[in-house]
């Protein structure tokens, strides 16, 4: 059997009405992972190759490990780097056409989701890992980032 979009909708409603934050369902080779409060993944084409077929259901981002936060000297003293916790395709927004997770000048805290890194259709949300203000966004949207690549610079709260 396979899951229709309607099935997934139903399951999402069930999860929403429940007291659980995460749901992982596996049947007959179909794997569905849902997470409360997770953003829908982007449907952007993977560059530079053709877009992958859209998955039947948009899995919510799996929480990625907290990114490594390193102090950085880049013109301004005391800026902190937010680096990608894994190799994948970096997306600034939950979906194409939607506003980015964060913009320059915005305040973030350690838990703020600042982007998504996709590894073979598995969406991993990246949180800031630091409290402060976004000063610069370095990684280009929709492109491959390495493990440890700097995504953004943050001026930490004093």
């Amino acid at each position: 059997m396979s899951l229709t979009a309607k099935d997934v909708e139903e399951i999402m409603k069930l999860l929403e009405a429940s007291t659980f934050d995460r749901l992982s369902l596996e049947l007959d080779g179909v794997k569905l992972e849902l997470e409360r409060g997770g953003a829908a993944p982007p449907r952007a084409a993977r560059l530079p190759r053709e877009a992958a077929p859209a998955p039947a259901a948009n899995p919510a981002p799996a929480p990625a490990a907290a990114p490594a936060v390193k102090p950085r000297k880049n013109g301004e003293e005391g800026l902190i780097e937010i680096t990608s916790p894994l190799l994948g395709i970096y997306y600034r927004a939950p979906k194409p056409g939607e506003p980015p997770f964060v913009e320059v000048g915005q305040k973030v805290d350690t838990e703020t989701v600042i982007g998504i890194v996709e590894v073979m259709k598995l969406m991993n949300s990246v949180s800031a890992g630091v409290s402060g203000e976004i000063v610069e966004i370095l990684a280009p949207n929709g492109e491959l980032v390495e493990h440890g690549e700097v995504l953004m610079l943050v001026r930490p709260d004093a």
């Binding site: 894994l86 190799l87 590894v119 073979m120 491959l144 390495e146 493990h147 440890g148």
Partner: peptide
């Protein structure tokens, strides 16, 4: 050269999805 993950092979060289994504 593309960094695919931490030093332990299980977190880098042995990750099928990461290799194909790279």
């Amino acid at each position: 050269a593309l960094c695919i993950g931490p030093s332990r092979p299980g977190d880098s060289y042995l990750r099928v999805e990461t290799i194909v994504q790279a």
